[in-house]
Nucleic acid binder design. Structure first.
Length: 795
RNA sequence: GCUCGCGUGGCGGAAUGGUAGACGCACCAGACUCAAAAUCUGGCGAGGUUAAACUCAUGUGGGUUCAAGUCCCACUGCGAGCACCA
C-alpha cells in the first residue's frame, strides 16, 4: 500500500471508531488546543492552512499521548464579504456557496489527518450560532458597552455605495477606481476603550510572543498628560485640549481644532466663514491616507476667534487644521511651536509666534523637543521637565482649568457593516419608543434569504421589506429594524467560548462548562490578528466576565504564531506573482504525513520561509528508511546499551523541544535515533522499534498507525502513552570535552562524569598539544566547566 | 519618522555565555548493479599542510568576560508593525 491508501484507510477507521472524541467526563487534566478557524473559501486549502493546522495538530496529538484530555475543535468563520461579492458576481446565494465551501473544506481538512473532534464544530453563519452573536450584542447594549454615533464610512461616489476597508485599494474603489471619500453615517460601536487599561495591563501575564504584546501595547497607545481648558475670548464658550507637555503651556501661542470639531462653526467669525467651510469640505473629501501622510505640507485656516491661555491670559488665535485628528484626545490641541515639530512647521508656514520655554536646541532651525531648564514660564522657570509637569498639574487643578489625565490611541470598535452576509444587529427603531433592543426571547433575528444585494447605495437589508418592517416590542406599533449587520470580527470574538458547549440552545454556553474548559491553553494562528481578533476576543472575555457569565480574565493563556511559507522565490505567495505552491500535488504524490513532516522539519515554525521541492523528498526518504528499519524487528528482549542511551536522549530532546514548538529539532532527534538503529541490520529488539513508532506517532499519524499494526500491535498507536525518559540513562559514561588555552581550542580530553576536577586538570595539562601551548608559560588559572570545557589561562 | 525583530556554510537550519555549523538537502568519492534508479559507507566552512600544526570565520566596528553567534554600545542591510496620536 502506498501512503495515500494508508492515509485513506486510517482516516476512515479513526472516524468509525471516534478515535478523536473528546472525553467529556474524563478525570484527566484538560488541555484546550485551538487553531484560529478559517474562512470557508471555494479554493482548496493552501500551504498556510497546512502549516497552521497540520503542525499544531502534531502538538495536540503529542499532548494527548502525554495523558492530557485534549480538547481540539474546529469550525468556520463563515460570514463575510467574499461570499457576498461572489453572490453579486454569480447570483449564487451566500448561504449556498458558503455551505458548499464548508463541505469542501471539511473534506480537505480530513485529508490532513488532524485530530479534531468534529462533534464540537461551530459555524458562525448558522442561526444556531448567530442567535448568540446577537445575544452578545444585546448584553453589551444592556451594559452600556454598545452605542450608536455618527462616524465616517468609506463611500464610493461613483458606485454610490459604502465600501469595506478591504475594498479600498490605496484610496480608490476596488471596483471602479474612483477616489473614495468619507461620509458620515450613524453607526454602532462597542466601547472597548472602557477596557483599555485592563487590556494593556493584562498583557504582562500572558504567555504570548513578546512582539505580539508590543503590537497590542502600541495599538492601545497609552499616553499620560493633561486636559487644559481654554476659554474662547469674548464668549462664554470654551474647549479642552489634551497635551503630554503641560509644562510648555507658557509657550502655547495658538490653538488648533480638528476641522470636524463641534465648536468650529460656533466660533468662526463671519469674515472667516467661507474659508473655514471650504477647508472643512476639502478635508472631508480626503482619504485617510492623504490626510495622515506625514510628508504632506501643513494646511489650515484661521477661524477669526481667539482663545485665552489660562496661565498668562494671553489671547492666542484659534485655527483649524487636518493635522489635528478629531478622534484622538479631545480633537483640539494647544500649539507650542518651539517644542513640537508639527506645531513648528505649521507656525513657520503661517507666520505664527514661536516662544521658547525650554533651554536647548536652536529654534531658528527646528523645534526642540527634549528636556531642559524652563524659561519664559512664570512659576515654572528654572525647573526641569518632570518638575515642571508636576507643578503644572497641581496648578491646573488648583485653578480649575485642567487636570492630569491619560488617553489611549485605542478607539471604540465600529461594528456596523452596510453589508448583507453578516449577523443582523438586533435593534428596532420605533417612532414612539426610539431605539429598542430586540427581546432575547425573539432571537435570532433571522437573516432573510430573499435579498437584493446588488450594490446601489443602500444596505442590502433595507430593500427587504419583510425584514425591515416589524412591530415595536414595547408599544406594538409599526417599527423598522436596523439594516446594518455586524462586523465578522464580532462572530470570531467569542467562538472559542462556544466550542465546548456548541449544541446548547438555551444559552450561548453553560457557565460551569466553560469555566472548566477555558481559557484556551494553546492558541495557534497568524500574527496578522494581533490588533484585531486577539484584542477583540480579550475585550469580549473581560466584558462577559464583568457581566457574570464567566470567571476568567483572559481567553488565550498561551499563544503561538506560525511563520509564513513563502514561494520558492522568497516572495509572499500570490496568484498574481505566479509563485503559489499548492499542497495538493505534494499530498497526491507523497501523502499528508510527508507534507506535514516537511513543514515541521524544513522550517523554524515561527519563522516560516521559502518553499523548496528538495526538502519534501528528504522527508519521504526518511519515512521509507523508518519503514525499512521497522521491518528489521526481532523478538529479543535484550537491552542494547547504545540503543538504550540513544533512545532516552531522543525522548528527552523531543519532550523539551516540542513544547517550544521546535518541531524541526524534534524530527532531527528522531533521525539521529533512526541512524543509530540502522547500524543494527536484523533482529532489533522489539522495544526499540516500538519506541521509534511511538516517538514518531504525533508527527506522522497515518504512517505510524500502519507500522504499529504491521508489527502486530493493537489499534491505536494514538491511544498509547508517549515514551518517557530516565534521566540516568541519558548520561554518557564518558564524554570528550575541549581544552582551551586562553580561550582557543587546543585539544580534547575524554573524561567520565564523576571525575574530580583535579583529575580533569591533570588530563588537560598532560595532553600533548596543550603541553606545547603551556610550556614555558605561567599558568594563571584553570577553569573547569564539568562536562563542557576546560580553559587554561596562561601568561 | 517612531517601535520591534532578524543577519550563521552552496541551501533549509542547529547551538541553557562553554569544542560553531546538530539534523537534512545539494555536491564528491566508494560499495552494490551489465547499467541506471533506489540503497549502503565515507567526505564536505575558507586558507594551509603529504599529514599535522596553525590561521581566518556567525553583517561591520568597538566593549564586557577565563570564554561571545549568544550580553552591552555604535553602524549597516533586510523584514514587520504603527504612522501628524498632541
Amino acid at each position: 500500500m502506498n501512503n495515500i491508501e494508508i492515509e485513506k484507510k486510517w482516516q476512515k477507521r479513526w472516524q468509525e471508531t471516534k478515535l478523536n472524541s473528546f472525553e467529556k467526563n474524563s478525570s484527566k487534566e484538560k488541555l484546550y488546543c485551538l487553531e484560529m478557524f478559517s474562512y470557508p473559501s471555494a479554493a482548496k486549502l493552501h500551504l498556510g492552512h497546512w502549516y497552521n493546522f497540520g503542525v499544531a495538530d502534531t502538538w495536540a496529538r503529542y499532548k494527548k499521548m502525554c495523558g492530557y484530555n485534549v480538547f481540539h475543535p474546529m469550525g468556520f468563520d463563515a460570514f463575510g464579504l467574499p461570499a457576498e461579492n461572489y453572490a453579486i458576481k454569480t447570483g449564487v446565494h451566500p448561504s449556498i456557496s458558503t455551505e458548499k465551501n464548508i463541505a469542501t473544506m471539511e473534506t480537505q481538512l480530513g485529508r490532513i489527518g488532524g485530530s479534531w473532534d468534529w462533534d464540537y464544530e461551530v459555524v458562525t453563519c448558522r442561526p444556531e450560532y448567530y442567535k448568540w452573536t446577537e445575544w452578545m450584542f444585546l448584553q453589551l447594549y444592556k451594559h452600556n458597552l454598545a452605542y450608536k454615533k455618527e462616524a465616517p464610512v468609506n463611500w464610493c461616489p461613483s458606485c454610490n455605495t459604502v465600501l469595506a476597508n478591504e475594498q479600498v485599494i490605496s484610496g480608490a474603489c476596488e471596483r471602479c477606481g474612483s477616489t473614495v471619500i468619507r461620509k458620515k453615517m450613524s453607526q454602532w460601536f462597542f466601547k472597548i476603550t472602557d477596557y483599555a487599561e485592563e487590556l494593556l495591563a493584562g498583557l504582562d501575564n500572558l504567555d504570548w510572543p513578546e512582539k505580539t504584546k508590543i503590537l497590542q501595547k502600541n495599538w492601545i497607545g497609552k499616553s499620560n498628560g493633561a486636559y487644559v481648558d481654554f476659554k474662547v475670548a469674548d464668549t462664554s464658550k470654551s474647549f479642552t485640549v489634551f497635551t503630554t507637555r503641560a509644562d510648555t503651556l507658557f509657550g502655547a501661542t495658538y490653538c488648533v481644532l480638528a476641522p470636524e470639531h463641534d465648536l468650529v462653526n460656533e466660533i468662526t467669525t463671519d469674515e472667516c466663514k467661507e474659508a473655514v467651510k471650504k477647508y472643512q469640505e476639502e478635508a472631508s473629501k480626503q482619504s485617510d491616507i492623504e490626510r495622515t501622510s506625514t510628508v504632506k505640507e501643513k494646511t489650515g485656516v484661521f477661524t477669526g476667534a481667539y482663545a485665552i491661555n489660562p496661565v498668562n491670559n494671553t489671547k492666542i488665535p484659534i485655527w483649524i487644521s487636518d493635522y489635528v485628528l478629531a478622534s484622538y484626545g479631545t480633537g483640539a490641541i494647544m500649539a507650542v511651536p518651539a517644542h513640537d515639530e508639527r506645531d513648528y512647521d505649521f507656525a513657520k508656514k503661517f507666520n505664527l509666534e514661536i516662544i521658547p520655554v525650554i533651554e536647548g536646541g536652536n529654534i531658528e532651525i527646528e523645534a526642540y523637543t527634549g528636556d531642559g531648564t524652563h524659561i519664559n514660564s512664570g512659576f515654572l522657570n528654572n525647573l526641569n521637565k518632570s518638575e515642571a509637569l508636576d507643578k503644572m498639574y497641581s496648578w491646573l487643578e488648583e485653578n480649575k482649568c485642567g487636570k492630569k489625565t491619560t488617553t489611549y490611541k485605542l478607539r471604540d470598535w465600529l461594528v456596523s457593516r452596510q453589508r448583507y452576509w453578516g449577523a443582523p444587529i438586533p435593534i428596532i427603531y420605533c417612532d414612539k419608543c426610539g431605539t429598542v433592543p430586540v427581546p432575547e426571547k425573539d432571537l435570532p433575528v433571522m437573516l432573510p434569504m430573499d435579498v437584493e444585494f446588488t450594490p446601489d447605495g443602500e444596505s442590502p437589508l433595507k430593500k427587504c421589506a419583510s425584514f425591515m418592517n416589524t412591530t415595536c416590542p414595547i408599544c406594538g406599533g409599526p417599527a423598522t429594524r436596523e439594516a446594518d449587520t455586524l462586523d465578522t470580527f464580532v462572530c470570531s470574538s467569542w467562538y472559542f467560548l462556544r466550542y465546548p458547549d456548541n449544541l446548547n440552545s438555551n444559552e450561548p454556553f453553560n457557565k460551569d462548562i466553560i469555566n472548566k474548559m477555558l481559557p484556551v491553553d494553546k492558541y495557534i494562528g497568524g500574527v496578522e490578528h494581533a490588533c484585531m481578533h486577539l484584542l477583540y476576543a480579550r475585550f469580549f472575555t473581560k466584558a462577559l466576565r464583568d457581566m457574570g457569565y464567566l470567571n476568567f480574565d483572559e481567553p488565550f493563556k498561551s499563544l503561538v504564531h506560525q511563520g509564513t511559507i513563502l514561494g520558492p522565490d522568497g516572495e509572499k505567495m500570490s496568484k498574481s506573482k505566479g509563485n503559489s505552491v499548492s499542497p495538493d500535488e505534494y499530498v497526491d504524490e507523497y501523502g499528508a504525513d510527508v507534507l506535514r513532516g516537511y513543514l515541521m522539519f524544513g522550517f523554524n515554525y515561527v519563522d516560516g520561509g521559502p518553499w523548496t521541492d528538495d526538502g519534501i523528498k528528504s522527508i519521504n526518504k526518511f519515512y521509507q528508511r523508518v519503514e525499512r528499519i521497522v521491518s528489521n524487528i526481532g523478538e529479543s528482549k535484550e537491552e542494547i546499551p547504545e540503543l538504550e542511551k540513544s533512545l532516552h536522549k531522543t525522548i528527552k530532546k523531543i519532550r523539551t523541544d516540542i513544547d517550544k514548538f521546535q518541531f524541526n529539532t524534534c524530527i532531527s532527534a528522531i533521525m539521529e535515533y533512526t541512524n543509530t538503529l540502522s547500524k543494527y541490520k536484523t533482529d532489533i529488539p522489539r522495544k526499540y522499534i516500538e519506541n521509534l513508532i511511538l516517538l514518531l506517532a504525533p508527527f506522522a499519524p497515518h504512517i505510524t498507525e500502519e507500522l504499529w499494526e504491521t508489527i502486530g500491535n493493537s489499534y491505536s498507536v494514538h491511544n498509547e502513552s508517549y515514551p518517557e525518559y530516565d534521566e540516568a540513562k541519558t548520561k554518557d559514561d564518558e564524554v570528550t570535552i575541549g581544552v582551551q588555552v586562553n580561550g582557543k581550542l587546543r585539544g580534547e580530553i575524554t573524561i567520565n562524569p564523576n571525575e574530580t576536577e583535579e583529575s580533569i586538570k591533570e588530563k588537560a595539562l598532560n595532553n600533548e598539544n596543550i603541553k606545547r601551548h603551556t610550556e614555558n608559560k605561567e599558568i594563571v588559572k584553570i577553569i573547569v566547566i564539568k562536562g563542557k570545557i576546560v580553559n587554561i589561562v596562561v601568561k
